[in-house]
């Protein structure tokens, strides 16, 4: 389990990164926290010809709350999100606890997680839930892709190999949002992750959104509008059943498709209840 050879390059700003990626060609890759990439390289499942290390780029590690919402710099560590108090975005700090373990969170980056595009990854699921926009920079300039279009399949995203994620923008606060998940062992990737966002009055749902991880090739938006329904346990349970009926999850060693459906029902109900609380 030793990686294949590659050439190492260090970038000091975003433009430098883009230029180096362009020069090094298709098989070059960005190296951020390395918490997904290096593990895959050790297995030789990933064998980039060159790595451009972006961790020395200054000024990309930030959480900026503005009138519109929240901007997260690509190099913001999971741990920074976990320990921050971000008004209206408590869901991010809370969800960070689900990502791996303390040392993983000290090293892994927000942008890296989005770029990696694991369908169960907390940041990917929440980006879709909160309708974030992914800010990419490349040789053709800057562009923004809605998270709903960014994740395109099994570890596939809209980012081109010569582009870099520089920021993730969350357009509006989500005081009533939650993410929950299940894995047998603490710190592991979720078998199923469920996230929910609500607008609600004391006893009635105004708008709702539910997004799942681990049930498809990318985060899956559940088609269920709870508007007008009472904000109670029964509604959450029913929504869970609706979600479970909609998904057709894959089977693997961590759980069969049927099991993932059952988890979906349970976890959606829990996420909604937590979001409403």
């Amino acid at each position: 389990m030793k990686p294949a050879a590659f050439t190492y390059h260090r970038a000091y700003d975003v433009n430098d990164t883009i230029a180096q990626l362009a020069e090094l060609g298709q098989d070059a890759k960005i190296l951020a926290g390395g918490q997904s990439l290096v593990a895959m390289m050790n297995f030789r499942l990933a064998r980039p010809s060159a790595l451009v290390d972006i961790t020395r780029i200054a000024g990309l590690d930030y959480l900026e709350r503005d009138a519109q919402g929240l901007r997260v710099g690509a190099l913001t560590r999971h741990r920074t999100v976990e320990t921050a108090k971000i008004d209206g975005f408590g869901v991010l700090s809370k969800a960070a606890r689900w990502i791996g373990h303390y040392p993983i969170r000290c090293r892994g980056t927000f942008g890296g997680s989005i770029a990696h595009g694991d369908s169960t990854a907390e940041w990917c699921v929440l980006a879709v839930l909160l309708e974030a926009r992914i800010v990419l920079q490349g040789p053709r300039g800057r562009r923004e892709v809605p998270a709903t279009e960014f994740f395109q399949g099994f570890f596939m995203t809209a980012a081109q190999p010569d582009e870099m994620i520089v920021e993730v923008r969350f357009p509006k606060p989500a005081p009533h949002a939650a993410l929950t998940e299940y894995s047998q062992r603490q710190g592991d990737f979720a078998i199923v992750a469920a996230s929910a966002r609500l607008d609600l009055t004391e006893d009635e749902v105004l708008t709702s959104r539910v997004v799942l991880g681990g049930v498809g090739q990318q985060p899956v938006v559940v088609d269920a509008d709870l508007a007008g329904q009472p904000a109670n346990e029964e509604t959450w349970r029913a929504a869970g059943e609706v979600a479970a009926a909609q998904v057709d999850p894959p089977s693997d060693g961590h759980g069969s498709s049927a099991y993932r459906k059952k988890l979906t029902a349970a976890l959606v109900a829990r996420a909604l209840a937590e979001a409403a609380a």
Partner: peptide, 13 residues
């Protein structure tokens, strides 16, 4: 000062 997995970082980093 931060705890990290030394197997997931290249020495050059």
């Amino acid at each position: 000062g931060q705890p990290v997995r030394a197997c997931l970082i290249f020495g050059v980093q």
